[in-house]
Design a protein around this nucleic acid. Structure first.
Lengths: 157, 157
DNA sequence: AATTTAGTTCATAAAATTATGAACTAGCGA
DNA sequence: TCGCTAGTTCATAATTTTATGAACTAAATT
Protein backbone atom coordinates (compact mmCIF):
# COMPACT_ATOMS: atom_id res chain seq x y z
CA UNK A 1 0.00 0.00 0.00
CA UNK A 2 2.09 2.87 -1.34
CA UNK A 3 1.55 6.23 0.16
CA UNK A 4 -0.86 8.43 -1.74
CA UNK A 5 0.59 11.65 -0.46
CA UNK A 6 4.00 11.59 -2.08
CA UNK A 7 5.42 15.06 -2.46
CA UNK A 8 6.70 16.61 -5.63
CA UNK A 9 10.28 17.88 -5.65
CA UNK A 10 8.94 21.39 -5.35
CA UNK A 11 6.93 20.46 -2.30
CA UNK A 12 9.90 18.75 -0.67
CA UNK A 13 11.96 21.85 -1.27
CA UNK A 14 9.34 24.04 0.38
CA UNK A 15 9.03 21.69 3.36
CA UNK A 16 12.75 22.10 3.92
CA UNK A 17 12.67 25.86 3.47
CA UNK A 18 9.83 26.24 5.92
CA UNK A 19 11.50 23.72 8.20
CA UNK A 20 14.76 25.64 8.26
CA UNK A 21 12.94 28.85 8.92
CA UNK A 22 11.26 27.40 11.96
CA UNK A 23 14.44 25.74 13.14
CA UNK A 24 16.10 29.13 13.02
CA UNK A 25 13.35 30.43 15.24
CA UNK A 26 14.27 27.75 17.76
CA UNK A 27 11.90 24.95 16.84
CA UNK A 28 13.01 21.30 16.95
CA UNK A 29 13.87 19.93 13.50
CA UNK A 30 11.12 17.33 13.32
CA UNK A 31 8.44 19.73 14.48
CA UNK A 32 9.71 22.28 11.98
CA UNK A 33 9.33 19.73 9.15
CA UNK A 34 5.81 18.90 10.30
CA UNK A 35 4.98 22.59 10.01
CA UNK A 36 6.43 22.63 6.52
CA UNK A 37 4.47 19.56 5.51
CA UNK A 38 1.18 20.92 6.78
CA UNK A 39 1.80 24.04 4.73
CA UNK A 40 2.56 22.38 1.43
CA UNK A 41 0.77 19.03 1.40
CA UNK A 42 -2.05 18.56 -1.08
CA UNK A 43 -4.46 17.97 1.75
CA UNK A 44 -4.95 20.54 4.51
CA UNK A 45 -5.49 17.83 7.12
CA UNK A 46 -3.06 15.02 7.70
CA UNK A 47 -3.10 12.01 9.99
CA UNK A 48 -0.35 10.86 12.29
CA UNK A 49 0.60 8.17 9.80
CA UNK A 50 0.59 10.55 6.85
CA UNK A 51 3.15 12.64 8.67
CA UNK A 52 5.27 9.70 9.79
CA UNK A 53 5.36 8.20 6.32
CA UNK A 54 5.81 11.29 4.20
CA UNK A 55 8.54 12.75 6.38
CA UNK A 56 10.11 9.34 6.93
CA UNK A 57 10.50 9.80 10.65
CA UNK A 58 9.74 7.46 13.52
CA UNK A 59 6.42 7.32 15.30
CA UNK A 60 8.00 8.72 18.44
CA UNK A 61 9.45 11.65 16.55
CA UNK A 62 6.02 12.33 15.10
CA UNK A 63 4.39 11.99 18.49
CA UNK A 64 6.86 14.43 20.05
CA UNK A 65 6.55 16.93 17.26
CA UNK A 66 2.77 16.87 17.20
CA UNK A 67 2.45 17.29 20.93
CA UNK A 68 4.89 20.16 20.89
CA UNK A 69 3.01 21.91 18.10
CA UNK A 70 -0.31 21.41 19.83
CA UNK A 71 1.09 22.79 23.07
CA UNK A 72 2.42 25.88 21.37
CA UNK A 73 -0.91 26.24 19.62
CA UNK A 74 0.51 26.08 16.12
CA UNK A 75 -1.61 23.12 15.08
CA UNK A 76 -4.99 21.68 15.78
CA UNK A 77 -6.93 18.59 14.95
CA UNK A 78 -10.41 17.39 14.11
CA UNK A 79 -11.90 13.98 14.33
CA UNK A 80 -14.74 12.32 12.48
CA UNK A 81 -17.28 10.00 14.02
CA UNK A 82 -16.50 6.36 13.46
CA UNK A 83 -12.85 7.17 12.84
CA UNK A 84 -10.36 7.15 15.66
CA UNK A 85 -7.72 9.03 13.75
CA UNK A 86 -6.96 12.65 14.47
CA UNK A 87 -6.66 14.97 11.50
CA UNK A 88 -4.02 17.57 12.14
CA UNK A 89 -4.05 21.00 10.54
CA UNK A 90 -2.36 24.34 10.83
CA UNK A 91 -3.76 27.03 13.04
CA UNK A 92 -2.68 29.84 10.77
CA UNK A 93 -4.82 32.40 12.51
CA UNK A 94 -2.58 32.16 15.52
CA UNK A 95 0.44 33.36 13.63
CA UNK A 96 -0.25 37.00 14.17
CA UNK A 97 -0.49 36.38 17.86
CA UNK A 98 2.68 34.30 17.82
CA UNK A 99 4.60 36.99 15.99
CA UNK A 100 3.41 39.58 18.46
CA UNK A 101 4.51 37.33 21.31
CA UNK A 102 7.99 36.97 19.84
CA UNK A 103 8.44 40.67 19.28
CA UNK A 104 7.21 41.16 22.77
CA UNK A 105 9.80 38.78 24.12
CA UNK A 106 12.50 40.78 22.43
CA UNK A 107 11.27 44.09 23.64
CA UNK A 108 10.77 42.69 27.12
CA UNK A 109 14.52 43.11 27.41
CA UNK A 110 13.73 46.64 28.50
CA UNK A 111 12.85 45.61 32.04
CA UNK A 112 16.09 43.68 32.29
CA UNK A 113 18.03 46.65 30.95
CA UNK A 114 16.37 48.80 33.55
CA UNK A 115 17.64 46.46 36.25
CA UNK A 116 21.11 46.64 34.77
CA UNK A 117 21.05 50.40 34.79
CA UNK A 118 19.95 50.46 38.40
CA UNK A 119 22.67 48.03 39.42
CA UNK A 120 25.38 50.14 37.79
CA UNK A 121 27.29 52.48 39.97
CA UNK A 122 26.20 55.87 38.78
CA UNK A 123 28.98 57.02 36.60
CA UNK A 124 26.71 59.26 34.59
CA UNK A 125 28.62 57.90 31.65
CA UNK A 126 27.58 58.34 28.04
CA UNK A 127 27.06 54.56 27.96
CA UNK A 128 24.31 54.83 30.50
CA UNK A 129 22.52 57.33 28.33
CA UNK A 130 22.72 55.03 25.35
CA UNK A 131 21.15 52.30 27.41
CA UNK A 132 18.42 54.69 28.53
CA UNK A 133 17.79 55.49 24.91
CA UNK A 134 17.50 51.83 24.03
CA UNK A 135 15.08 51.23 26.88
CA UNK A 136 13.01 54.13 25.65
CA UNK A 137 12.96 52.66 22.17
CA UNK A 138 11.83 49.27 23.42
CA UNK A 139 9.12 50.88 25.48
CA UNK A 140 7.95 52.73 22.43
CA UNK A 141 7.78 49.57 20.34
CA UNK A 142 5.90 47.77 23.08
CA UNK A 143 3.39 50.54 23.17
CA UNK A 144 3.02 51.11 19.44
CA UNK A 145 2.91 47.55 18.21
CA UNK A 146 -0.61 46.75 19.41
CA UNK A 147 -1.79 49.97 17.81
CA UNK A 148 -0.22 48.90 14.58
CA UNK A 149 -2.08 45.58 14.68
CA UNK A 150 -5.31 47.48 15.30
CA UNK A 151 -4.69 49.72 12.32
CA UNK A 152 -4.14 46.68 10.16
CA UNK A 153 -7.37 45.12 11.36
CA UNK A 154 -9.27 48.33 10.75
CA UNK A 155 -7.88 48.61 7.23
CA UNK A 156 -8.97 45.05 6.52
CA UNK A 157 -12.61 45.99 7.02
CA UNK B 1 47.33 38.28 41.52
CA UNK B 2 43.63 38.11 42.26
CA UNK B 3 41.24 39.55 39.80
CA UNK B 4 40.04 43.04 40.53
CA UNK B 5 36.82 42.67 38.64
CA UNK B 6 35.03 40.15 40.82
CA UNK B 7 31.28 40.38 40.40
CA UNK B 8 28.75 40.82 43.16
CA UNK B 9 26.03 38.21 43.46
CA UNK B 10 23.63 40.66 41.90
CA UNK B 11 25.93 41.15 38.94
CA UNK B 12 26.37 37.42 38.48
CA UNK B 13 22.62 37.02 38.51
CA UNK B 14 22.22 39.67 35.84
CA UNK B 15 24.95 38.14 33.68
CA UNK B 16 23.00 34.89 33.73
CA UNK B 17 19.68 36.57 33.01
CA UNK B 18 21.08 38.47 30.07
CA UNK B 19 22.93 35.35 28.99
CA UNK B 20 19.80 33.26 28.98
CA UNK B 21 17.93 35.90 27.08
CA UNK B 22 20.53 35.89 24.34
CA UNK B 23 20.73 32.12 24.30
CA UNK B 24 17.01 32.04 23.72
CA UNK B 25 17.54 34.29 20.75
CA UNK B 26 19.91 31.69 19.35
CA UNK B 27 23.26 32.92 20.59
CA UNK B 28 25.94 30.48 21.80
CA UNK B 29 26.12 30.22 25.58
CA UNK B 30 29.61 31.65 26.03
CA UNK B 31 28.96 34.59 23.72
CA UNK B 32 25.70 35.23 25.54
CA UNK B 33 27.56 35.39 28.87
CA UNK B 34 30.11 37.78 27.41
CA UNK B 35 27.24 40.06 26.42
CA UNK B 36 25.89 39.84 29.94
CA UNK B 37 29.27 40.62 31.44
CA UNK B 38 29.82 43.65 29.24
CA UNK B 39 26.45 44.95 30.36
CA UNK B 40 26.93 44.60 34.08
CA UNK B 41 30.66 44.85 34.77
CA UNK B 42 31.90 47.84 36.70
CA UNK B 43 34.03 48.89 33.77
CA UNK B 44 32.52 49.50 30.35
CA UNK B 45 35.59 48.14 28.60
CA UNK B 46 37.05 44.72 29.33
CA UNK B 47 40.09 42.91 28.08
CA UNK B 48 40.30 39.38 26.76
CA UNK B 49 41.74 38.23 30.07
CA UNK B 50 39.12 40.05 32.14
CA UNK B 51 36.47 38.11 30.29
CA UNK B 52 38.27 34.78 30.49
CA UNK B 53 38.90 35.14 34.21
CA UNK B 54 35.61 36.60 35.36
CA UNK B 55 33.51 34.15 33.39
CA UNK B 56 35.84 31.28 34.17
CA UNK B 57 35.96 30.01 30.61
CA UNK B 58 38.88 28.89 28.48
CA UNK B 59 40.84 31.21 26.25
CA UNK B 60 39.47 29.46 23.17
CA UNK B 61 35.91 29.92 24.35
CA UNK B 62 36.61 33.60 24.87
CA UNK B 63 38.29 33.88 21.48
CA UNK B 64 35.32 32.23 19.77
CA UNK B 65 32.77 34.31 21.59
CA UNK B 66 34.52 37.59 20.96
CA UNK B 67 35.00 36.95 17.27
CA UNK B 68 31.38 35.96 16.93
CA UNK B 69 30.20 39.10 18.67
CA UNK B 70 32.47 41.29 16.58
CA UNK B 71 31.23 39.65 13.39
CA UNK B 72 27.63 40.22 14.33
CA UNK B 73 28.50 43.76 15.23
CA UNK B 74 27.36 43.51 18.83
CA UNK B 75 30.70 44.49 20.30
CA UNK B 76 33.63 46.66 19.43
CA UNK B 77 37.07 47.36 20.78
CA UNK B 78 39.52 50.19 21.27
CA UNK B 79 43.22 50.08 21.81
CA UNK B 80 45.61 52.45 23.54
CA UNK B 81 49.08 53.28 22.32
CA UNK B 82 51.79 51.36 24.10
CA UNK B 83 49.29 48.65 25.09
CA UNK B 84 48.73 45.63 22.95
CA UNK B 85 45.49 44.63 24.62
CA UNK B 86 42.15 45.21 23.00
CA UNK B 87 39.45 46.73 25.15
CA UNK B 88 36.09 45.25 24.26
CA UNK B 89 32.84 47.10 24.74
CA UNK B 90 29.20 46.86 23.77
CA UNK B 91 27.89 48.49 20.65
CA UNK B 92 24.53 49.32 22.15
CA UNK B 93 23.60 51.68 19.38
CA UNK B 94 23.33 48.74 17.02
CA UNK B 95 20.58 47.13 19.02
CA UNK B 96 17.80 49.01 17.31
CA UNK B 97 19.12 47.88 13.99
CA UNK B 98 19.49 44.31 15.25
CA UNK B 99 15.94 44.23 16.52
CA UNK B 100 14.68 45.55 13.22
CA UNK B 101 16.66 42.86 11.43
CA UNK B 102 15.14 40.12 13.55
CA UNK B 103 11.61 41.33 13.07
CA UNK B 104 12.39 41.56 9.41
CA UNK B 105 13.56 37.98 9.33
CA UNK B 106 10.27 36.90 10.83
CA UNK B 107 8.16 38.89 8.49
CA UNK B 108 10.27 37.75 5.55
CA UNK B 109 8.25 34.57 5.86
CA UNK B 110 5.73 36.32 3.65
CA UNK B 111 7.69 35.63 0.48
CA UNK B 112 7.95 31.98 1.39
CA UNK B 113 4.23 31.85 2.13
CA UNK B 114 3.58 33.39 -1.26
CA UNK B 115 5.57 30.57 -2.85
CA UNK B 116 3.56 28.03 -0.88
CA UNK B 117 0.32 29.55 -2.04
CA UNK B 118 1.44 29.48 -5.64
CA UNK B 119 2.51 25.86 -5.37
CA UNK B 120 -0.87 24.81 -3.99
CA UNK B 121 -3.38 23.42 -6.42
CA UNK B 122 -6.04 26.06 -6.51
CA UNK B 123 -8.72 24.74 -4.28
CA UNK B 124 -10.01 28.20 -3.46
CA UNK B 125 -10.26 26.83 0.05
CA UNK B 126 -10.83 28.95 3.12
CA UNK B 127 -7.35 27.93 4.25
CA UNK B 128 -5.83 29.70 1.28
CA UNK B 129 -7.61 32.88 2.24
CA UNK B 130 -6.25 32.71 5.75
CA UNK B 131 -2.78 32.38 4.35
CA UNK B 132 -3.40 35.37 2.09
CA UNK B 133 -4.48 37.30 5.13
CA UNK B 134 -1.33 36.38 7.00
CA UNK B 135 0.82 37.41 4.05
CA UNK B 136 -1.01 40.71 3.95
CA UNK B 137 -0.35 41.22 7.64
CA UNK B 138 3.35 40.49 7.27
CA UNK B 139 3.56 42.89 4.35
CA UNK B 140 1.91 45.52 6.45
CA UNK B 141 4.34 45.07 9.31
CA UNK B 142 7.29 45.18 6.94
CA UNK B 143 6.01 48.42 5.55
CA UNK B 144 4.99 50.09 8.79
CA UNK B 145 7.90 49.16 10.98
CA UNK B 146 10.44 51.54 9.44
CA UNK B 147 7.88 54.31 9.77
CA UNK B 148 7.51 53.48 13.41
CA UNK B 149 11.24 53.77 13.96
CA UNK B 150 11.19 57.13 12.21
CA UNK B 151 8.38 58.36 14.43
CA UNK B 152 10.38 57.36 17.48
CA UNK B 153 13.43 59.18 16.21
CA UNK B 154 11.39 62.28 15.48
CA UNK B 155 9.87 62.23 18.93
CA UNK B 156 13.30 61.99 20.47
CA UNK B 157 14.24 65.38 19.02
C1' DA C 1 68.24 36.76 20.79
C1' DA C 2 65.16 35.34 24.24
C1' DT C 3 60.96 36.21 26.61
C1' DT C 4 56.56 37.85 27.36
C1' DT C 5 52.07 39.18 25.88
C1' DA C 6 47.82 38.65 23.47
C1' DG C 7 45.69 36.11 21.46
C1' DT C 8 44.37 31.90 17.53
C1' DT C 9 43.85 27.16 15.99
C1' DC C 10 42.67 22.58 16.17
C1' DA C 11 42.05 17.89 17.74
C1' DT C 12 39.46 16.04 21.23
C1' DA C 13 36.18 15.79 25.11
C1' DA C 14 31.93 16.86 27.31
C1' DA C 15 27.28 18.12 27.16
C1' DA C 16 22.94 18.85 25.14
C1' DT C 17 19.65 17.89 21.70
C1' DT C 18 17.16 14.92 18.76
C1' DA C 19 15.72 10.50 16.81
C1' DT C 20 15.03 5.56 17.05
C1' DG C 21 12.74 1.18 17.96
C1' DA C 22 10.65 -1.81 20.89
C1' DA C 23 7.40 -2.37 24.31
C1' DC C 24 3.37 -0.64 26.03
C1' DT C 25 -1.68 1.37 26.59
C1' DA C 26 -6.38 2.19 25.74
C1' DG C 27 -10.33 2.14 22.97
C1' DC C 28 -13.04 -0.10 19.37
C1' DG C 29 -15.03 -3.75 16.56
C1' DA C 30 -15.82 -8.50 15.39
C1' DT D 1 -12.06 -12.26 24.17
C1' DC D 2 -9.02 -11.40 20.53
C1' DG D 3 -7.02 -8.53 17.55
C1' DC D 4 -6.41 -4.12 15.40
C1' DT D 5 -5.74 0.73 15.29
C1' DA D 6 -3.75 4.97 16.98
C1' DG D 7 -0.99 6.44 19.22
C1' DT D 8 2.58 7.07 23.87
C1' DT D 9 6.66 6.09 26.60
C1' DC D 10 11.25 5.27 27.57
C1' DA D 11 15.91 3.51 27.37
C1' DT D 12 19.38 4.00 24.16
C1' DA D 13 21.77 5.64 20.01
C1' DA D 14 23.15 9.15 16.83
C1' DT D 15 23.99 13.79 15.95
C1' DT D 16 25.06 18.41 16.92
C1' DT D 17 26.75 21.93 19.69
C1' DT D 18 29.90 23.80 22.79
C1' DA D 19 34.08 23.91 25.60
C1' DT D 20 38.74 22.48 26.67
C1' DG D 21 43.76 22.46 26.65
C1' DA D 22 47.87 22.19 24.39
C1' DA D 23 50.48 23.85 20.76
C1' DC D 24 51.17 27.58 17.94
C1' DT D 25 51.90 32.62 15.92
C1' DA D 26 53.24 37.24 15.68
C1' DA D 27 54.31 41.44 17.62
C1' DA D 28 56.45 43.96 21.39
C1' DT D 29 59.79 44.04 25.35
C1' DT D 30 64.01 43.12 27.82
Amino acid sequence: MGNTLALTERQKELVEKIGIFHEQSGMQPAAARVMGLLFVADKRELTFDDITEVLGISKSATSNAINLLIQTDLIDYTTFSGDRKRYFRLKITNWREGLARKINHMTSMNTLFREVLEARKETGAAEDEKLEELIDFLNYVNQELPKMVERWEARRR
